[in-house]
Design a protein around this nucleic acid. Structure first.
Lengths: 349, 349
DNA sequence: GTCATTCAAGAAAACGTTTTCTCGGATTTT
DNA sequence: AAAATCCGAGAAAACGTTTTCTTGAATGAC
């Protein structure tokens, strides 16, 4: 089972077996063949733990995501795993479920396993929980934190670009009253999206009604609640942009419940462009933030940091473009916005 | 950084440090306190690799799923992770993406990491790929394979129960032409579901039209295609049962496209009851196969096998009940169906 | 033909733990 | 009070590798 058994049967030293496996040049072809034959015969697989103990390299990366049951994340996990496999790395995934205890535990375990780097894809603000990793000089990559620190890279999401496209698209369809359902505003990323929305509106000369800035929670339930609120306003908006797709799905659901037709009565734009978006009814127009791309960037950030001989003095900043994907959940604004809504209300009574 | 440093600073031997960490009784409270203080001070975390090298226990379980981007699986991964955390295990997850090469590689790596057990949740038929694990006597747990072998447990899904409920439910709503969209029939699990459907229909005395047995592929796209086929039949069915929820979502999507209203024109039942089902428009009636429960069973199967002193001679068989969850995608059959069923029922008496 | 050089492969050290073995002092037994 | 027992803690072995050091044979130089 161990390298010794192989060595014994091939009548060589364990050093030779090790060298054979690792393709070190100094081993005679003849011996090499003999060793390989025994390895095959025995079905010998080297013990990774022993290997990385002596080599000091675990070939493991950690991946921390908020919640794997949120459809946004599986694509990231898959993408990360795909590249990891290609590069002979393994990954230790943790779905934090927003539980600080869980995060702390997971960080601890990753350190104990001597991971070579950790990608933190959480959109959260639990930064302090990762101090342990930082002080141990483990390469990290975050989403949307700055400024870069030694060994700590960052993927900056260019929210502005996609959201501007969304606002312009709606404006082109004659929408003027546009609501924005944000994520929890304690989250940097949620804040950034809202800010991008406001700036885009101002840029294009549309008024931002503070009543139409609604704080959601990035869940379907949140979308449902938010739409209820929106429909209660005397002056209903004709379009809604959501801070993520799950919220948009909630909005759709509640619209159906209340007899509001999308996109005839209400145009809807999501954010993230999860795969599901295209299978909604109607297919959801959304701002794409490529999960695969995020995964790729995150992995490469870690890998290149690990492969460096001297640590990067200031991490690296990667930028991810977002951009609008048009589908069927947006349409021309109902003419004379207001009146139409008034009529709608009457017929509802 | 290592146990030696701790030992040096606490002026004890490394054995004492080890004993302190592992709570071995024979260590004086006074010394213990001294050691702990140094550990805290240094922020020392033991090296898992060294630990499990000597102890021979990796405290890792492998988890192999078909495709983490399929909404059915994340709940399983999460559930598995939850229990693993509670039991101080770590998990190495692989999403096979149906690629045999990938599976083989992943199996190999798991063996190299000396995982203590592997849960295989794939609904596939790549069984031969796991022979390596079997021959190494690593505890395994499968879904829906039998018969049990030494150290190999099995979770048998009781498809019949839930599907019978679904058929009875539809029959009660006076449906008699009921279509079934299966998964790929090379899959045991897909076959089993179809068989359960046929048996349930016969049980209740409804005819099974072979034309209404359609082979899908467990994807949304498959559902879309299948519905197109169904709508082309001269004698359309009034209800459809799908072999999984993704297929049902595809059916919904295409129904919308073709102006077929669910549930007025067509009743729809899914299978799996993924979380998303309740957020569909309309909320999808589905046969629940609790993913959390599967995860729990799988983990416990592995854990109890590992904790045994002598291996189980025949694994253990766990059974998971399925049952219908009623929502809004089913309704009374369009009139015309009614009468006939009434007659049918009479003749059955 | 002797001596320096090269090189393949074995011996041994090292990685960071746990665990067995050993030892010396304290406690109990007689 | 001497002998036997216990017990806390250090020394050392072991886990399965990689890698450095060593060795001895073969090659080449003069």
């Amino acid at each position: 089972m161990s390298i010794h058994e192989v060595a014994r049967r091939a009548r060589v030293s364990i050093a030779t077996v090790s060298r054979t496996i690792n393709g070190v040049s100094t081993v005679t072809p003849q011996l090499s063949r003999r060793v390989w034959r025994v390895i095959e015969e025995l079905g010998y697989y080297p013990n990774t733990q022993a290997r990385s103990l002596v080599s000091g390299r675990s070939r493991i990366f950690g991946l921390i995501v908020s919640e794997i049951t949120n459809p946004f994340f599986p694509e990231i996990v898959q993408g990360f795993e795909d590249i990891a496999v290609q590069n002979n790395y393994e990954i230790l995934t943790t779905s934090t479920v927003h539980d600080p205890k869980r995060i702390a535990l997971s960080v601890r375990r990753m350190i104990e396993r001597r991971v070579e780097g950790v990608a933190i894809v959480t959109f959260g603000m639990e930064e302090a929980l990762f101090d342990d990793l930082k002080s141990r000089k483990i390469p990290l990559v975050f989403i949307d934190v700055g400024p870069p620190l030694p060994r700590i890279s960052n993927i900056r999401i260019d929210y502005q670009h996609g959201i501007r496209e969304a606002v312009q698209h709606l404006a082109a369809l004659c929408h003027e009253r546009i609501a924005f359902i944000s994520g929890p505003l304690i989250l940097k990323s949620a804040m950034a999206r809202q800010r991008a929305f406001i700036e885009s509106m101002e840029e294009i000369g549309l008024p931002v009604d503070p009543n139409l800035l609604i704080e959601g929670d990035h869940t379907m339930e949140g979308g449902i609640k938010a739409l209820k609120k929106i429909l209660n306003f005397p002056k209903r908006p004709t379009a809604v942009i959501c801070s993520n797709d799950m919220t948009a799905i909630g909005v759709m659901r509640q619209s159906y419940e209340e007899g509001v037709h999308i996109p005839r009565d209400l145009s809807l734009v999501g954010f993230d462009d999860i795969r599901l978006a295209q299978f909604m009814i109607p297919p959801l127009t959304s701002v794409k933030m490529s999960q695969t791309e995020i995964a790729r960037m995150a992995f490469n950030a870690l890998l290149s940091e690990v492969q460096r001989d001297i640590p990067s003095p200031n991490g690296t900043e990667y930028v991810l473009r977002t951009s609008l994907v048009l589908r069927d959940s947006t349409a021309m604004a109902p003419t004379g916005g207001r009146k139409k809504v008034a009529i709608l209300k009457k017929s509802a009574e």
